[in-house]
Amino acid sequence: MTSWPLLVSTLLTCCGLGTLFFAGLGEVRGFGRRSRTPALAAALVVLVASLVVTVVGYGSPAAALAILRGVTRLSGVSLSMLMTLLGVVLAVVYLAMQGRGASRGARVAIAALALFVGASGAWLAGNQYVLANKPAWNTWLLPVCYLLNALAMGGALTCSIMVLAHDAKTTRQPLCVTAAVVVANLIALVGYAAHTGWTVSPVPFWGVAVAVGCVVALACVVAALKVPQLVIAAFLCTAAGGLCLRVAMRLLDGDFIQIVHAVSSGVHGYGL
């Protein structure tokens, strides 16, 4: 759950689900029609990559599948895995509907599902780390940071694909939404740092997650209103920010009672 491959898998999950969210938003708000198929394909590829990393992290496909047993008990790990799988299924169905020219009603219905799965899945990816035993993680701000970073990545990736697919005429709306999300993410990150008593690691958190992942990303998103290609840089910045948020969080995994864990780790070993 806290191993490095699994932290990377949550980044990919959030990126894929964020992109799925923006595909749904585009359907409802009417942007990115021509580039929706490549955007959905990108979301699908990223979500499948997340599942592959999850399998690597848990050592075998059987172990990764066994995770789903905990869904009924609302285990955070299980729910996050379930949402990733739902994202994959939704992306496949949505892609099939795109290819067959489904009715407006059907497309809006699946867009609504994409909005729900995208947002709730990203939130659940962060919420699995909210544990009473981890004081630095035990805050609702952590899943909020995950969610906002996911939407920032999804928005920037969607706009990047729109630019690359020569569908840049309607990027203004998603760029404005992405900019608003990045600003909200910046506020949430500062709130999270305050929750930790300002003990977050300076380089990964302030240097990358905040400065690069929010400030530089915001500058790129705003500049992309005039130079659309810059949104690709914004996507890379938000992805780097998301990765370093996870690194900074992982470095703050101190336990509720340190001494017991120190003994458990063999600091006071008995030589038995």
Partner: peptide, 19 residues
């Protein structure tokens, strides 16, 4: 037989009881 070694329980246990 069912444990997959994900260590979520270790992260959650406040008392360092698990290895």
């Amino acid at each position: 037989d069912t444990c997959i070694g994900c260590q979520a329980c270790i992260a959650a246990c406040p008392y360092g009881a698990r290895t």
